[in-house]
Simulated scan of single mutants.
Amino acid sequence: MSHPLTLQVMDTHAGGDVSRIVTGGIRALPGESVRQQMEYLRDDADGLRKLLLFEPYGIPEMSVDLIVPATDPAADHGYIIMEVMGYPIYSGSNTLCTATALLESGLVPKREGDQSFTLEAPAGRVQVTARVRNGVVEAVTCEGLPSYIDTYRTTIHVPSLGEVTYSVAYSGGFYALVESAQFGFVLSREEESRLAACAHAIVEAIRAEGGFSHYTLGDVGPLPFLHFMGPVEHVAEHFYRSRSATYVHPGVICRSTTGTGTSARLALMHHEGTIQPGDRLETVSLRETAFTGTLTGIRQEGRHTVVENNITGRAYVLARSQIVVNCEDPLVECAGLRHILTDEPIPHE
């Protein structure tokens, strides 16, 4: 490469979780669906994820979302989610950020009031509704993935902790759901490093006992996430609140409560009979940010009661910039990246 190339990006955050949205600088990817394009990135071009999530360009606590053309004719745009642990097929906070970036960049024309559009995630079609007031995107509501309880209140021995009681939900990934009171946590920011260490020990113990299988997707890999649950407060009719914290990677507690973590909580609360369709749960993070999950419906899939839901939050634009990718820089690793860089913008039509 004789000269540096650039990536066009918009940095955003939802609930404190930073998502870097890539809007240009990457060639059109092969694949007949966004899921196949994601698999191509994962298997043949993982250099983009590594470039933007690690030094000198980023940190593991961030996420990256690549805007790609939708393959579903009913969708306006596609997006591929990249995180330190790999390529999740869905993420609530990343969807909130991607939807906001599409509106703020003009890729989706912004209109006053409530407007709806459709995105294609690797998990499939996602309906989005944005509330715009005086040109500002004040809130975004996106569909959460259908969620269910796989395992309810079982125990495991964790060498550093003793007996731990947990449940397992699927909400876009498998989550261990753990009551924070078991360990004396009140879910404050001062506990962040101890929460991460505790969660890591539990996740490793659960992984050692085996994996989990989705009722249609099959094996989706080892359990990656743990969601600490604080006490549930009944705030008003059909409205609940709970402090929460989500572990995603060794040393990393999400700054937000995460959309998929909130969906997992809705599935658990419905399983326990404490909420019904139409009820809302606000999850509050260590940084006092919040997402609101709404239980919109239930259905039966074999032995699983599946919770349909949506997630509401707000994303903020942090920066609009170009990232210079200079493969002659000794700190820049271009393996798995050179072949997808381009001077041309991503085609979106």
Rank of each mutant, 00 (worst) to 15 (best):
Q37W: 00
P231G: 06
E143V: 00
T12D: 11
D76P: 08
Q37C: 04
D150W: 04
L96K: 07
T312W: 11
H348D: 00
T305Q: 13
T258C: 15
G135N: 07
E301H: 10
G218I: 06
A199E: 08
H200Y: 13
E204D: 12
S63P: 10
A74D: 14
Q115Y: 08
H200N: 14
R280E: 14
V325L: 04
H234D: 10
A197Y: 01
V325P: 07
E192T: 15
R49F: 06
V108W: 01
S263R: 02
Y40I: 03
S244H: 12
V140L: 07
P250A: 08
A319D: 13
Q37V: 03
Q37K: 14
I253D: 06
T283W: 09
A45T: 02
G230Y: 07
Y247I: 07
A45L: 01
R133M: 07
G313A: 13
I311M: 12
L107Q: 12
P122F: 02
C198E: 04
R314W: 00
V203Y: 08
Y170S: 05
P231T: 07
K110W: 01
P250R: 10
P231I: 05
T141I: 03
H238K: 13
I21N: 11
S147Y: 05
A319M: 13
V235S: 12
L268M: 11
G336N: 09
R243P: 01
H157P: 00
L107V: 00
V132W: 13
R207V: 03
G86I: 07
G259D: 04
Y215F: 14
D114R: 14
F228A: 05
D329L: 10
A201R: 02
L96H: 06
G302L: 07
G144V: 02
G297T: 05
I340E: 04
E308L: 15
R320P: 08
G92C: 10
L103E: 10
A101C: 06
F183V: 09
S2A: 08
S91H: 01
K110F: 03
H238R: 15
G297R: 06
P146V: 01
L41C: 09
G144Y: 01
S91E: 00
L281S: 11
H13K: 09
G78Q: 08
T292P: 11
V22D: 11
L5N: 05
T118K: 08
L217H: 06
V108K: 13
S321F: 00
E272I: 01
V84G: 10
L66I: 11
G124P: 03
G218Y: 06
E328I: 00
G278L: 13
G162R: 09
G31V: 07
T129Q: 15
R194M: 14
P330C: 05
S91Y: 02
T71M: 15
G261A: 09
S91N: 06
A319P: 01
C327T: 08
Y40V: 01
T283C: 15
L52Q: 12
Q127P: 01
S93D: 06
I81L: 15
G24N: 14
E328N: 14
S171M: 12
D17Y: 05
P56I: 05
I59L: 10
L187S: 12
A176E: 07
G293E: 02
S171K: 10
V137E: 12
E179D: 10
T305M: 08
E104Q: 15
E138I: 00
G25F: 05
G135I: 10
A315E: 11
V140F: 02
G92I: 01
L145G: 00
L318A: 08
M1E: 08
L337Y: 04
